[in-house]
Write a protein that binds this DNA or RNA. Sequence first.
RNA 1: CGGGGUGUAGCGCAGCUUGGCUAGCGCGCCACGUUCGGGACGUGGAGGCCGUGGGUUCAAAUCCCACCACCCCGACCA
Length: 489
Amino acid sequence: MSANKPGGASARQGEGRGVTPRSLDYSTWYTDVVTKAELADYSPVRGTMVIRPYGYALWENIQKDLDRRFKETGHQNAYFPLFIPQSFLQKEAEHVEGFSPELAVVTHAGGKELEEPLVVRPTSETIINHMFSKWIQSHRDLPLLINQWANVVRWELRPRLFLRTTEFLWQEGHTAHASEPEAREEVLRILQLYRDFVQDMMAIPVVPGRKSDSEKFAGAVETFTIEAMMGDKRALQAGTSHYLGQNFAKAFGTQFQNENNELDFVHQTSWGVSTRLVGGVIMAHGDDKGLRLPPHIAPIQVVIVPFIRSDEDRARVLPIIDQIRQALPQIRFQVDDRPSLSPGFKFNEWEMKGVPLRMEIGPRDLDKNQIVLARRDTGEKEFVDLDRATHALPDLLEQIQAGLWEQALAFREANTRTVETYEEFKAQLDEVGGFFLAHWDGTPETEAKIKEETRATIRCIPLDSPQEPGRCMVTGEPSKQRVLIARAY
RNA sequence: CGGGGUGUAGCGCAGCUUGGCUAGCGCGCCACGUUCGGGACGUGGAGGCCGUGGGUUCAAAUCCCACCACCCCGACCA
């Protein structure tokens, strides 16, 4: 039976109340979760999406915490324009080569053809350097630590909700420093910041590492990455931090006078995470009932479903709810008192939306002076004495945060293998998939061969794995360290 | 760009092979009532340029041609 006939995978999409099971069709499961949890919806222009209020609230929570971390490390927010003169892109050779194929270009405006076409920014290194070159004169102007929250456009060939949309939201940090060591320190500081954020807030374990030359950012000297494992065992690049060296500084003349009265080019970094993180949290934690959100970033942490059948019930139940909410102002509550829907319907809906904790309360509970708490991560229900509720709720949220982390970590560990030979690698990749730690001779030729033959890529050269002499699994040439290889999004 | 599909009510689909009745079904939506501790039920109701343009025909959702859009798989990528 072909995939698009009735009964095939895509025919199931959107059907019924639940989502397509992950085991049946992971890709359709993902799309189902995004649309049914009301995170996003398709927009009329190919590859673009509308981020719906619930999805946007999730992004805002991500933004809020990251923004705080950026500011704590001395960065300031600014905003640079969407339009960039086409000639700017062409000033840095690798940059233009890397981005040309995916640019959206404005050629007409105000009813006339433009003198010079404008590129809709795919990233802002060029326009920011243009400005930096005006703002920086002295070593006293450095370091310059700028971040911007923005939308960017990349005309990707194969879009996918949140993971790769034509237009996406992100933050891009751009910094200029007086020396290479200082800039490199910044690159790793941000990588660590990203790692802490994704692990502590999103409960997704990541492998920090350096990208191979062929995988690095167009125009960078070195690119660092955090790589996460998704529920189908594929890798997701969750954030990148680039050491740009003096490449852009030289292209744009971003110079300063140092303490020795010499003119020098600044050393730069850039780094970003995007709305792709939302896709990451879906695929790292979601199950066949839908989304499972880590409490630290969940727009709604506790949904309260009251059982109310009469005014008398209402008079008993609502004050208790108010009391609990007032006692816990730090928790994000939502009370679902929609009268026309049955409790079962509500339970399923909030499970689809991944709310970490559900609190049930009705006359029957109040008779016993208790409430019911149901965890989204384990599905467990427990009865809690009313007077213990204000302690139980925050405790449980932390347990759920930790529980999701433990599950994701255990899953990654169980699906990460060290392999010695290319045959072993290929067999295991097809049979079980996942992350592979293997020796590589460091050449682009071998890297290309692996990619060509297996569709897996070298995700990174991990930073925190030990130096360990070995032989490349493909060529047998010497290698100093194992690298992380996987199929990726 | 290559391969595979799909466009019919808000969503999911049937109808097309073999042209013809008032274009159906499920879910959702609206009103009222009964329900409500794991996806409730009854009654009544609203909602359609059948993707777009052209052609064939007495007659087109249905046949022919062209176009457009979107989805899935690959190459590019945060």
